[in-house]
């Protein structure tokens, strides 16, 4: 099975458009009390860049490429891990009075 298809640019445009609408719709009806956790949450989600950085590092062939790739993975991992913990800590604090009485 050959999965080595490249994505033609028009397909990429469709993906981008649909993803942009998804992001807009998901956020549009959010109460402002959640804006800070959500900014942190979306900050976590673009931490997926670490996967791209890993891809770059695994294909690096020169010391310079390896060095920059190392830096990329380091930064990307920081983005993902920091974003996750920060969001988790903020969200863990939101409780209603009903939940608190349990």
């Amino acid at each position: 099975m050959n999965l080595d298809l490249t994505m033609a640019w028009p397909i990429a445009l469709y993906v981008f458009m649909l993803a942009a609408f998804t992001g807009y719709e998901v956020i549009a009806r959010v109460p402002s009390i959640l804006h800070t956790p959500l900014m942190s949450g979306s900050n976590f989600i673009h931490g997926i860049v670490v996967v791209g950085a890993l891809h770059a590092l695994f294909n690096a062939t020169t010391p310079l490429g390896q060095g920059i790739g190392f830096l990329g993975v380091l930064l990307g991992a920081g983005n993902a891990a920091g974003g996750y913990v920060a969001t988790d800590r903020m969200l863990a604090m939101f409780k209603s009075s009903a939940a608190r009485k349990d």
Partner: peptide, 19 residues
């Protein structure tokens, strides 16, 4: 050529712009 990055990045791009 990584759709996961494309989708996650663009979702954050538009959600972040709206925020």
């Amino acid at each position: 050529q990584n759709p996961a990055l494309m989708i996650a990045g663009m979702v954050v791009g538009s959600a972040g712009t709206l925020l």
